[in-house]
């Protein structure tokens, strides 16, 4: 317990100090808490990183969940040829490591003219999350009872209407779980953002944070404040929704 918390406590404490205090004694409590470091970190780029992270996460997760729900539903419930082939093809994507696609994706994005734009993050995030999302949802859709759908179909509803009005509402738990897992992945993703984005103006929090340190003149305590700022949103979300988090992450058993 101490091993988990003391490092977190230590960094929060030091993020409230002046640089001189930090260098003299990193164990002492700050003389008086200095929230200026947080303001500095925020102004030195964190406001932008946050905006970028939210934009990229929200759009890629929304598209991922929507497309995967359609796909998983069709594969589980509708009449389509080559169902198994398509299912294996998509879920097979889970076996492929993003690292192996990195260099070619860079070439492709360059050719498509979307290198160094938000799309260079959003597109691969969607592509690499769909297999996982389909995998989670397919199992769920496959299992639920068909009576409601049948009733609706007899009433003359189209498949899309059935999907929107009946299937989606009762699938809330799995949609929530998929959304959470995809959000954690996207929010924390590093290597694609590192390689596909050049401009400081477009980077997300993880890359922004790592570049923070690199400038010749490093603001150490501001950096520590940055670490805390970067971690807080996920921790807060977790504290409020720990059950959904755990359900989502354990259902998939795949590490970020």
């Amino acid at each position: 317990m101490l091993i988990i918390f003391y490092p977190l406590f230590w960094i929060i404490m030091n993020s409230l100090k002046t640089s001189t205090e930090l260098f003299i004694n990193s164990f002492a409590l700050p003389e008086k808490p200095l929230f200026q470091n947080y303001i500095d970190a925020w102004n030195m780029g964190f406001s932008k990183f946050f905006f970028n992270s939210i934009l990229v996460t929200a759009s890629s997760v929304a598209v991922t969940v929507l497309l995967s729900a359609f796909c998983a539903y069709a594969l589980a419930r509708l009449d389509i040829k080559f169902k198994n082939l398509i299912l294996y093809l998509i879920i097979g994507g889970l076996l492929l490591s993003p690292h192996s696609a990195l260099i070619s994706l860079y070439k492709i994005f360059d050719a498509l003219n979307i290198y160094n734009t938000y799309f260079a993050m959003i597109v691969p995030y969607i592509a690499f999350r769909i297999p996982f999302a389909v995998f989670l949802m397919y199992g769920y859709f496959k299992d639920f009872p068909g009576d409601l759908e049948d009733a609706a179909r007899i009433d003359g509803c189209s498949t899309l209407k059935i999907f929107m009005r009946i299937v989606m509402p009762i699938s809330k738990p799995i949609i929530a779980a998929t959304t959470i897992v995809s959000s954690i992945f996207t929010w924390n993703e590093f290597i694609f953002a590192l390689v596909f984005i050049e401009s400081e103006e477009l980077v997300t929090i993880p890359v922004g944070l790592s570049r923070f340190r690199d400038a010749l003149q490093t603001n150490w305590t501001g950096m520590m404040a940055g670490i805390v700022l970067a971690s807080l949103p996920m921790i807060i979300a977790f504290l409020f929704m720990s059950k959904s988090f755990i359900r989502g992450l354990t259902a998939g058993s795949v590490k970020g």
């Binding site: 977190l8 993880p206 890359v207 790592s210 950096m223 970067a230």
Partner: peptide, 11 residues
């Protein structure tokens, strides 16, 4: 496990 790797690595 839900903190991003760069944040943990820098910590």
């Amino acid at each position: 496990s839900i903190i991003s790797i760069p944040a943990v690595a820098l910590l």
